[in-house]
Structures are given as C-alpha cells and as structure tokens.
Design a protein around this nucleic acid. Structure first.
Lengths: 230, 230
DNA sequence: CGATTTCATTTTGTATACAATATTTAAAAC
DNA sequence: GTTTTAAATATTGTATACAAAATGAAATCG
C-alpha cells in the first residue's frame, strides 16, 4: 500500500538495529520533524500514520508523545490527542533567554573554576572551531559548550540538556553568516574566561545565547514553520 | 489477596471519577511518593505492584514513568526499568538555585511591569499570608508567587511549572519556623516590588528560593529520604 | 437555508498478550 | 569455599484488542 506518499512521517526506523528504546527513537524523530518545520503549529499528530510509517505500534509512539509533551513541543490533551504546540517567535526568544540565563551562570562559574589545562583545551577547541569547514562547526560548537558546562552541578546539567533538546539547532544552512556570529560569540566568552572575569563571561554567554535565539527563530521562519499549511 | 500490606504503592485511584488521563494521576501519585520519602533513591519501581495497588494496567503506568523520568525524579533505563533517582542534597540545592535564577528574573520584570492594582493585590495576598493559620499558608504562598509569575512570558512560565513540580513542597510540617522565614522572604520581595526596585526584587527572590531549597532538602532529610531502606 | 440532533466512523485510552531481555537461583567446576 | 555456567523466573518492551469518547456526516427540525 503506498499511503506512504501522503504520509509526512515516513522513515525507515533503526534499520537492522536492536529492538528496545523505540520510544526515544520515535521521540527524536518526531522532534526533528517539528523543529525542521515539517510539522507546523497546530498539526494534529496522527499516531496511526506514524505507526505505519515507522512500522511500530502505538505503545512506544504514545510514550514518545508524552516526552515531547513534557518538552513543550506538543500539546497533549487527554482524549483529544497531541498537536504541535503553537510556538511563537516570542517563545523561541524567551526559551533562549532562559538558556542564556542558565548558561551564563555556568560560564561565570567556569571562569573561576577552570584549570589552566581546561582553558588551553577550550582555546584549542575554539581554534579548531574557527578554522573548521562549516560542516564541522556543529561538532566543535558542541564541544565548546560541553566543556564549559562540565563545571555545572548535576541538576544544572540536566536542565541545560532539556533546554538544548527542545529547540532548533543547526542554523548554519538557514541563517546568513551565522558561522561568523557564532565564532565571534565564542571569542568573547573565551576571552572572558581566560581573563578569569566571571561577570564578563556570564554577559558574553548571555549575548551569545540571545543571538542564538534570534538565529533559531529565523531558521524556523526560513523553514516555513510559521507558514500556512495549505 | 492481601499483598497490599507489603505494597508501598497502595491507594484508591480516582474514586468514582471519570476514566481518562490516568497517566497524569499516576504520575502525580508516584511523584508524591518520591517527594515524601516513601520511595527512596535507588528504589526499583515495580510496575506490576503499582498496577495491582491502583488497579490499572501497565500502559498508563509506563506513560507516567516517562513523565517522571523527564522530570529527573526517576532514572529510566531501557530494558532495566525505572528507579528513583539518587538525588543528593546538592541536587536539591542546585535545583532551587535554578528556580531562584528564573524566578528572580521574573520578579525583576514584575517590579517594573506591575500596575498599581497588581501591587495592591500582592499586598493583600501577602497580608492574608502573614496572618493565616499554617494550614492555609501553602495556598497564599502559591497565590503570591503565581501573581508575580503571571508577568513572565509563556516559555518562562512553562519552565517555572516544571521546576515547581519536580521538587518537594509543603515544608511546614517538617522545617522548624519555616512559616516565619517564608513570611520574611515575601516581605522583602514585596517591599522591593513596591519600591519598583527590580534589582532588589530579583535578589530578594533569589534569597527566598535559596532558603526554600535548604528547607526542601531539610524536609527530605526529615522524611527519611536519605535513610537506608533496611 | 441554517441550526441542531442523530447516527456512523475514527481515534483515543486502557487492558491484555506475548516475545525478548534481565535477573535470580541452582548446579557445576575449579 | 568461591567463581562459572546453566537453567528457571520475573520483568520489560512492543504489539494487539476493545470499550469509551470525540469527530464528522447525514438527517431532521426550525
């Protein structure tokens, strides 16, 4: 049966992989559909369609939808099902503002807690980041932030993970000159940490995350997230 | 069969109520078991036992466990099941520190955004809070914070809800003099907002949430959360 | 015609079934 | 007596089944 063509969820699930933890895979998949604009705000999530597209039953699907509901990407209403949350630009900006608030606090800690070795590793990552081809930017970007965030206490790391997951990433293809902006942002953060200036590190991180928020919103816009669905 | 006696999950579920949204109810219930110290860190969640105690099947139970996993109250490992997260005192303190960071930011906004009507309502709530019997403290405490938080943008409110849910509340029975401390904390916040001093409001809110964190950790301690389970 | 009710269809929520994996228990080897 | 191995048991993850509720379409009434 070729209903797959009309089905926005089509994908081959975990080809040849082990069975188990399907829910996480499904959550990751639907999350990416939302964050790339394939599913727009208000779109009703069709459990049956996901099931036949991914060839899984509704049990792990429902667990995945619960996860995305908790992340605020879906509105899950008892007896009515799950819908893509109608995230506005303000929501995205706000989200990144919070992200910045927490990350800024951590950057401030890093500035006073980092060892000299940490600092030179951060420098090294940043160097590679600044020179790498765009295809590898995302990787070094992650390394940069991960190293800084490693000084955060456990619960803070948990929150950072949550805030990171539930929001668009990879702006590079959609936001003009984002690589330049990102490198500049990291530059300022690095400098502040090198100078052991906690306040400057916090402020630089907040600015960087604010910029990221604008980029994230722009990328959603560019991906048609806010366009009518026909 | 009276396995109910050995079963830490026993409860009558939704007596005479409507069927639907069971998962949320179960999540709330297990959450309260964790946060009141009935289930200690490392405790393996027994889906079967919950099922027979609440007389529900494993489907909504599993969805509930996913929710609590997302909140960080349970460690949910594929194929091994769900365990009560081994939250440490540091985690609780850290959590409230984050709570304070976000709440502080919102209090700062409130100080500049509140109308005169808002301020007199806040005063009124605080008055009733300060004079109410302890049994009603929790109610007025919520009203106080809810009014302040109402100025926050949507995503921030979402995060505040998450941070509020996944942590112990109602310290009054377990923490000596907490009512006094709470009233004093609210006093300072109110004063700062009345004075339209955003910075002071933020700082007062951060102090208040810091104190709440200590109280939360103390209440978990008093409830035996960190005692050996025999 | 437009609104409202009734009936058919779809979709959800929960329960149950069953295969796959973990865990525990018992036996065997060292 | 301790460690390994092997069988038995319990528990998880996913699929399927079915009743209850929501949605949509036809029919009825104003």
């Amino acid at each position: 049966m070729s209903d797959a063509v009309e089905n926005p969820y089509v994908k081959v699930m975990n080809p040849g992989g082990q069975r188990g933890g399907l829910a996480d895979e499904i959550a990751a998949y639907v999350r990416s559909l939302v964050l790339t604009g394939a599913l727009k705000p208000g779109h009703k999530i069709d459990q049956e369609a996901i099931g036949s597209a991914l060839d899984v039953s509704r049990s792990p699907i429902r667990e995945a939808l619960v996860v995305l509901g908790q992340e605020g990407l879906l509105d899950v209403t008892p007896r009515r099902g799950a819908f893509v949350a109608d995230l506005t630009r303000e929501d995205i900006i706000d989200h990144y503002e919070l992200f910045g608030l927490v990350s800024g606090r951590v950057a401030e800690m890093a500035a006073s807690v980092f060892s000299d070795d940490d600092i030179s590793e951060l420098k090294s990552i940043h160097d590679r980041f600044a020179n790498a081809p765009i295809s590898e930017h995302s990787k070094f970007n992650n390394e940069f932030h991960r190293l800084i965030n490693s000084v955060a206490p456990r619960r803070t790391r948990w929150l950072l993970g949550l805030l990171e997951r539930s929001v668009p990433a990879n702006f590079y293809d959609f936001v003009q000159e984002w690589d330049k902006t990102a490198v500049h942002g990291h530059d300022e953060i690095l400098e502040a940490i090198v100078a052991r200036d906690g306040t400057a590190a916090r402020e630089a991180m907040e600015r960087h995350l604010h910029d990221s928020g604008v980029a994230a919103a722009d990328s959603l816009l560019a991906r048609g997230f806010w366009e009518e669905s026909k």
